[in-house]
Amino acid sequence: MSFKSVCRSILFGIPIGVTFLDTVGYVAKVEGISMQPALNPESTNTDYVFLSRWAIRDYKIERGDVISLTSPKNPKQKIIKRVVGLQGDVVSTMGYKNRYVKVPEGHCWVEGDHTGHTLDSNTFGPVSLGLITAKAVYIVWPPERWQKLENKLPESRKPLSLSI
């Protein structure tokens, strides 16, 4: 292969790869204990999850979905949490400044599964849907943990009143 065609492949290969990662999804490593027991059940090994960008192209999320979002406190950090309430829901908080919160329009309430060891909406309040980057759908590594991430919400954390 000539030098010119190598350059050409790189010039077109990188944008194609980046576009694929931007629209379809990518694999990311999960750090921290905030999503135990669903992710990283033992602190020793870390899970890798497939984050689907395609699933959130219309910002359609449901209660119980595991999503990744840009941290409102530190935009350089991506966090992974579970959606507890959608816009219009009334959620009972745990340690937020108000006991009950009505999730404002265009926002959602996210929480980690590991209550007490997670930095989530109970600290920084409802988050704007625009901060959501992807939806986590599969655990892909280690191989024995290969599974679909279930959409589940413990009965105790269900919003008090659902919006229609």
Partner: peptide, 19 residues
Amino acid sequence: LYRLQRGDIVIAKNPTNPK
């Protein structure tokens, strides 16, 4: 790169409607 300064005009997603 998070190098915004006061006085810059920016385009942002609407916090109440991400579309």
